[in-house]
């Protein structure tokens, strides 16, 4: 895609595959409801990094940002509950363990995508499939569906937003159950 800068490419290839680890780290440090927001805030810092190609370990880089942001939030918070915190040992594991979680999530991605596609509303799903799987251009999809190009554009946007959001959102510890459930639905 021509709209992606080098830093965006780097972000997709080096950062996003570790999203499960980031989410787990965040969930240890802040209440579950705030975890995804913390990850997104860390992403916003990471994507502004200068010399991103010189960062030796992008995963540790973001994990450290998450931890520092959590410290900042805790200092501002009225009350911090230690139930959300792990001991340092667990933290170190998160920092240095070989990247089995990224590998795992990479493998899951395909199954998850199939399942997620099934959850899209009818028209956005049809548009996403035609555009990305059949490889039709927006104009061709418009003709085939009897819609205007701008309506096709809206369906594509809606479908992509749902997919992108769901790809970030599923909390790691529920992933197994959720995937299994989606799969059942897919196979019926």
């Amino acid at each position: 895609m021509t709209w992606l800068r080098d830093v965006d490419r780097w972000f997709i290839d080096e950062i996003l595959p570790h999203r499960v680890a980031f989410r787990r780290q965040a969930a240890r440090l802040v209440p579950t409801a705030e975890a995804e927001d913390l990850v997104q805030e860390a992403y916003a810092r990471a994507i502004n990094a200068s010399h991103h190609r010189e960062i030796v370990n992008p995963r540790s880089f973001v994990l450290t940002i998450i931890r520092n942001l959590a410290h900042e939030r805790h200092r501002r918070a009225t009350v911090v509950r230690f139930e959300h915190l792990a001991d340092m040992e667990a933290m170190e594991i998160a920092d240095s363990a070989p990247d089995q979680f990224a590998v795992l999530s990479g493998n899951l991605e395909l199954a998850r995508l199939i399942a997620l596609m099934e959850t899209l509303p009818r028209q956005p799903r049809a548009v996403v499939k035609m555009r990305r799987i059949e490889g039709l251009l927006p104009g061709e999809i418009a003709v085939r569906m009897g819609l205007s190009v701008s309506t096709v554009e809206k369906h594509l946007a809606k479908g992509l937003a749902i997919l992108a959001y769901a790809m970030q959102e599923a909390p790691p510890q529920e992933e197994g159950a959720q995937i299994a459930r989606l799969w059942q639905r897919h196979r019926q």
Partner: peptide, 22 residues
């Protein structure tokens, strides 16, 4: 806003990923 850039790469990734379903 850096949050725009982050949201965009996440959407771009979904856009790319769907293609793998071919």
């Amino acid at each position: 806003d850096p949050r725009h850039a982050v949201a965009f790469v996440q959407v771009a990734q979904a856009f790319e990923q769907v293609e793998r379903l071919r």
